[in-house]
Simulated assay, not measured.
Amino acid sequence: MAVIVCLVRDRRSAELAQVRSASEAAQRALLRPLPRRLGSLDLSCTYLAAAKEARIGGDLYAVARTGDRTRVLIGDVRGKGLSAVGEAAALMAAFQEVAHQHATLPAVASALDRSMCRYLTQFPDDEALEHFITALLLEVPDHGSVARLTHCGHPPPLLISRGQVTSVPSFPAPPLGMCTFEQDVRTSHTFSFEAGDVLLLYTDGLVEARDSRGAFYPLEERLAQWTKCSPETLIERIQRDLHAHTNGALHDDAAILAVRRTATPHAGRLGSEGRPMADQKLC
């Protein structure tokens, strides 16, 4: 009996390892590693999946260079786990195309909305109405001290500037893929984003994570303690602190992306995986 139990356990462990390996490969294909430096930005990100066996879900992020500016997308597909992967992949693929084809963020958002509506037509009518994606679109020119934001039903980003943490004001519009709203309801908001400032973009799995008493993760309060951190160190601290807050039990996917503006656009050879040859932590 002991031998049989060991054989069954070993086989299940091997099957689980295969599932994890396949899901990690899929996640690397969908969420390709972002460069640490792009244009006038330093970047760092992480993805935390609620479905630990799958290690992949419906939260997403992507970046695109167009002319002398960088555009950033972060989004959250309704639902979690493998059922949301297809919609996340469709949106990221559409973003890489339309980010280069439109002059303004509202136009990019409208194009993404049309693309997702076309994608959702493959679902039965009763299911399509339940599918949508909240998203934020960010645009940062290489020169100047401003950035632009288009809000599609997503949690607003937090700005760390001169030791203070504030929520970036925006004008919410419907999520992508609702297919029942006029396209011209989407607008962009311009705000100050100076050299040294850091923007934290995230999905609601971060701020809705609860501890054993049911208290939400106090993101803004935590950021106030880490205002001098580099993007990479900031992400590392949030990830460790979130794990401690939830005791390792995350009930929704969470994507986190930190963006710091530099004084001048980066120019230099990237190392492996699209990363620079060297990087410094400033926290």
Rank of each mutant, 00 (worst) to 15 (best):
L234C: 10
D204H: 10
Q122L: 10
P141A: 01
L120E: 02
L120I: 05
A109M: 08
T233D: 09
H143V: 04
S188T: 12
D211F: 10
G214E: 04
E221T: 14
M116H: 03
S212L: 14
T134I: 07
Y217S: 12
C229K: 03
P175W: 06
D211M: 09
M116G: 03
A173R: 05
E221G: 15
V108S: 02
E208Y: 11
S115F: 00
L200R: 03
L129V: 15
T190N: 00
D125W: 03
T166C: 12
Q183T: 04
V146W: 02
H151F: 06
Q225W: 08
G153I: 05
L219R: 09
V146D: 13
H151M: 12
H151L: 06
Y202P: 04
A107R: 08
V146H: 12
L219K: 09
A128D: 04
F181G: 00
L234F: 02
Q164C: 11
L158F: 07
S170E: 04
A195T: 11
A128S: 15
A135F: 04
A215E: 15
E208G: 09
T104A: 01
A147P: 05
R148Y: 07
M116K: 02
P157Q: 08
L219T: 15
P155M: 14
E194Q: 14
L201S: 02
P175S: 09
A107E: 13
T227Y: 04
S145L: 01
S192F: 03
C179L: 01
T190M: 07
Q183A: 12
K228C: 07
D125R: 13
T134P: 10
T134S: 15
M178A: 11
F216H: 14
S115E: 08
R237F: 06
E130D: 14
R210Q: 13
E236K: 14
V146K: 10
L200Y: 07
T227R: 11
S212Y: 10
F171T: 15
L137G: 00
Y217T: 11
T104Q: 00
S161H: 12
Q225A: 15
V108D: 03
V198T: 15
Y217N: 13
P106A: 06
A147R: 07
S230A: 07
Y217K: 11
G196S: 09
R237E: 10
T104P: 00
D113M: 02
V168E: 08
V165Y: 05
T121E: 14
S170H: 10
E221L: 11
P157G: 05
E130P: 01
G153K: 07
V146A: 11
E232P: 03
D204L: 12
D126G: 08
S212H: 13
S115C: 04
R148P: 01
A135E: 01
E220L: 05
P231T: 06
A209M: 07
R210D: 08
P174N: 12
Q122A: 15
P141I: 01
L159P: 06
T180G: 00
S230I: 00
H151P: 01
F216T: 13
H131S: 09
C152V: 02
A224H: 06
P172T: 04
E232H: 11
I238C: 11
M178F: 12
L136N: 11
F123V: 12
D113Q: 09
T203P: 03
